[in-house]
Design a protein around this nucleic acid. Structure first.
Lengths: 109, 109
DNA sequence: ATTTATTATTGTAATTTTGCAATATCTAAT
DNA sequence: ATTAGATATTGCAAAATTACAATAATAAAT
């Protein structure tokens, strides 16, 4: 007990849950917004922007990398992150498909 | 340590993270899909549909109720759940707005 | 009033997540 | 080679999440 029983669900359901989990933290939302806004990528100014410690930011970046939402490129002695447009678009697509407008529904049963 | 530092972020960022967290579990994805598909609501057949114990389902339903994604109406000695269309549409809107297509971006920096 | 059926709550254990200090790694510059 | 600047990794503590057995609560039927 304590671990999600992924075997009970379809790949689609597990994947969607993982997508949601990737952005289920305000720091990761803020990081993504920052990268999107500053068209040109960033690096360590995230540590100053958000008020979190460097290892914490690094960990959140890692999680975003793990789901391929961002990519990091070494630039001198710092690292430059950018959005992976394909994954970004895929997230949009799948989440949008999930929240397809509900039709018939006259207040239950 | 262990608790999200919500005070560092804007209301929008925290709200978006909460929306994502609400669907960041395959069981809750499955529950929502089931309610949407069976236009007429459900009740305890979720326990059979998914392979989770009744208290576990009840707990997931509670979380979905907490963010107003679903509503429950007492029907005899069972409970009938349905989608809250307003919240559903709001989730769609905000997530869609977040994942707005990324423009300029020629592979980093 | 009792029984039956269904859902909610409580309590608990395992796991995961969050956050950071300390440290390691890596690159550029001296 | 050493140093300086920046990011990643490790290890740990606190908190949150997931899952369920046991139990309570609630409503219908007998």
């Amino acid at each position: 007990m304590g671990a999600t029983k992924t075997t009970l669900f379809t790949k689609e359901q597990n994947d969607l849950a993982l997508m949601a989990k990737a952005i289920a933290h305000p720091a990761r939302i803020a990081i993504l917004q920052h990268i999107v806004q500053t068209n040109t990528c960033i690096c360590g100014d995230l540590v100053e922007e958000l008020g979190l410690a460097q290892p914490t930011i690094s960990q959140h970046l890692k999680e975003l990398k793990n789901v391929n939402l961002i990519e990091g490129i070494i630039e001198g002695n710092s690292v430059c992150y950018c959005i992976n447009k394909e994954t970004w678009a895929a997230f949009r697509k799948f989440l949008n498909a999930f929240f397809v407008p509900v039709k018939i529904n006259k207040k239950c049963c």
